[in-house]
Each structure stands twice: as C-alpha cells, then as structure tokens.
Design a protein around this nucleic acid. Structure first.
Lengths: 199, 199
DNA sequence: AGGTAAACTCGACTCAGTTCGAGATTTATC
DNA sequence: GATAAATCTCGAACTGAGTCGAGTTTACCT
C-alpha cells in the first residue's frame, strides 16, 4: 500500500541528492567526500550506495533532470514562426547555457554522455531526446521548403549536434568564455552548413 | 655529462611505460593498479610518480606519441593532388583509426582533451596541431579556388573538427562500429558543408 | 680519492570511494 | 498479535591512487 517505507525512501533520496548538489556547488565535486554528503544528509555513508550506484550518478541524475526541465520550458515559450536556423540556435543555446551553468557539472556530464564507458540505455535515451527533436525540426523545415528535399534528417541532426558539441569543446578549451561569443560562432557555423562553402 | 644516471632514467621511464601500456591493454585501465605497474616494471610505486604525475598521464603521453607518429606517416605518403575534401577525409580517418584502435585509450584521451579539467598547455598544444594543419589545408583550397574566398579558416577548421568529434561520439555511443561506416558518414557530412543544405 | 649536494628510490602512510554483513525496521502471512 | 520474510541502514573493513620522508646512489668539485 502507501507505505511508510516508500515515503521514507523518497525522503532519504531527496535528502542525499539535495545535500550532495549543495556541497558539489559550494566546494566542487572532487573536494566533496562521500562522508561529507552522508553527514550533511544525516545518513550513513553506505546508505548512499543504496540510492545511487556511485558518486558520479548523484549529480548525473540531477543534471539530466535539469536538462529536461530546461527543454520543456523552451518548448512552451518557443514560437514556431521563425526559420529553422533561428529555432536551432535558440534550442542549442538553451542547452548550452544549461549545461555550462556549472562548469564542472557540465564537464562531467558531457564526458559521460559523449564518451561513455559503455553505451548504456541511459546514454542512448539522453541522446535520443536530442535527435527526436532535431529530426522533427528538419521535417518541418523540409515541408516549408527551407532545406533541400532529399536530405537524411538523421545525418543533418548529427551535423548540427556535432557543431554544438564542438562549441562545447571550444568552451572547455577556453577558446571562448562568453555566451554571446558562442552564439555568434554558432550562427556562423550554421550559416556555413546552410549555404555551403564552395563557390 | 653523458651520464649513467640519465641513461638509467630513460631505462626506468621506458620500463614503466612499457609495463603500464601492456597491462592496460591486457587488463584494462581501471583493473590495472599502480602496484601492478610498479611490480611489472620492477620499481617501487612511488618511483612512478617521479616520472608521471598521475596514472592517466602514463598512457595519455603514449597516445599522444602514437597520434603524432600516425600523422607524420600520413604527411609522407599523402599526395597533394587530391581535392581538399579527400585530403581531409584521409587525414581525419587516420586520426580516427589511430585513436579508436584501443577503444578505452581513445575514450580516455578524448575525455581529457576535449573536456579538460582546465585548459592546460598540453591540451592547447594537442588541439593546435590539428588546427595548424587544417588552416593550412584551407589556405591551399582557397588558392586553388576550391572554396569561397572570404571564409574564416579558423572557423572552417572548427567546423570540420566538430564533425570529426561528432563521429567519434557516435562511435562511442555505438551508432556505428565499422570504420567503413564512419568514412561513409564523414564523406556525407563533409559534402553537406561543401554544397550547403538550402535549395 | 674523498666529501658533498643533488637526484633517485621505495616502504609506509593517508585519504576517499566502494563493499560487506550484521542488526534494525517495516511489511506480509496466518 | 506473533512470527517470518523482505528491505533498509550504517560502522567497519577493503581497495587503490597519490604523498612523505628517510635511505641510497651518482655527479661534481677540489
């Protein structure tokens, strides 16, 4: 039934996640020990492992949630009356801002999602969310005549996604530091894809 | 001068690197402990830290070397009489094959190089090697009239580099498993950049 | 040759993530 | 309501990366 146990579990889980994210944000991921998290959350260290398989997973889970939230907000507020390029820029910039809001979180998330130890469902689902959206965008763009009719939408999604990843790598390599720069470069790159670079 | 000491150092260093790479290859990176490496190399654990700042650096150094070697081979055997697209494909495929030869090594190298803890000189140098070459390619292509004359070569380099990184991420996410597939997709993506996707 | 300083080596230690297993708490069964 | 079964909890132990500092070797100088 309802269950005292179930209720307590949710509570404990939330306490651990909250404590962990708070500490990670304030002290950094590496500087926060599992003992720190345990005492902040008021549980034993081993208890944490009943809820999260590893230290990484605590905030990976959290990051993923935040990314989904950011995207849902975006979907609501986004008008459909703009060119697909503007739409893509808005879409990727939301993601970009969300993922780099905390530099360290973003770095760890990207490492795990783009170059995973093994291709788990978690990773595939995460990526699939992007691709579903992007393929939708290109279907619309095709109907509107904004792009050539015989293009592979999966390939196109991969193309724009790659550029987004490249910009993230540029960010983490300190090739740029301002979101404005990122957007400017993103626009240039996207235009390049649109118009081609050959005479 | 010449030095018994210097000679021994080189010998020790090589012993450590050889033992480490051998163990990493056979047992995997995580499953190999520093103690394992130390006893295989016939030195004390702490000695390793006199040669390499951390476990990662042992094979990061090795990977980087291999990448440089692969590139030098490439430069020698590559004809200049092919289109810049074919040149880029050959270039990136060499890199791709070299970096994914050992799946785990490549993964760790990419994580470290693309999303580094902090942008160290090592990382910048590593990336700069790519960009120098790419910018050179585009200069030639521009002179030959293969690309439009007013393009930013740095941006172009970033564009193709991003596509390469995207393909790597696809590889690690198991979207493809054969080098032939990678090359095929790479060609499609590169053609997309050349001709544009707009009507 | 002998002495000294610098460089090298490594056993022992610390520190943090993860696992174990025994005891406590809740739920299910009769 | 008692008892068994399942689940949850956490102190203690384990593991492996990285550090420390004392002991050893080598290079250089006079």
């Amino acid at each position: 039934m309802g269950g005292i146990r179930e209720q307590k579990k949710q509570q404990t889980r939330r306490a651990i996640e909250t404590a962990a994210i708070d500490l990670f944000s304030r002290k950094g991921f590496d500087a926060t020990s599992m003992d720190d998290i345990a005492s902040a959350a008021g549980v034993g260290k081993a208890t944490i492992y009943g809820y999260f398989p590893a230290k990484d997973d605590i905030f990976l889970h959290y990051c993923d949630d935040r990314l989904v939230t950011a995207f849902n907000q975006f979907k609501e507020q986004q008008s459909a009356d703009i060119s697909f390029v503007e739409y893509l820029i808005a879409f990727f910039m939301i993601k970009f801002a969300s993922i780099t809001e905390n530099r360290e979180f973003g770095r760890l998330l990207l490492r795990e999602m783009l170059f995973p130890r093994e291709a788990t469902d978690k990773v595939r689902d995460h990526n699939q969310r992007y691709f579903d959206i992007l393929e939708g965008v290109f279907s619309v763009a095709e109907k509107r005549g904004e792009i050539l009719p015989d293009l592979d939408h999966f390939m196109l999604s991969g193309h724009f996604f790659s550029l987004y990843v490249g910009l993230l790598a540029g960010w983490y390599g300190c090739y740029f530091n301002q979101l404005e720069e990122v957007e400017q470069n993103m626009r240039t790159l996207f235009e390049q894809v649109c118009h081609g670079i050959k005479p």
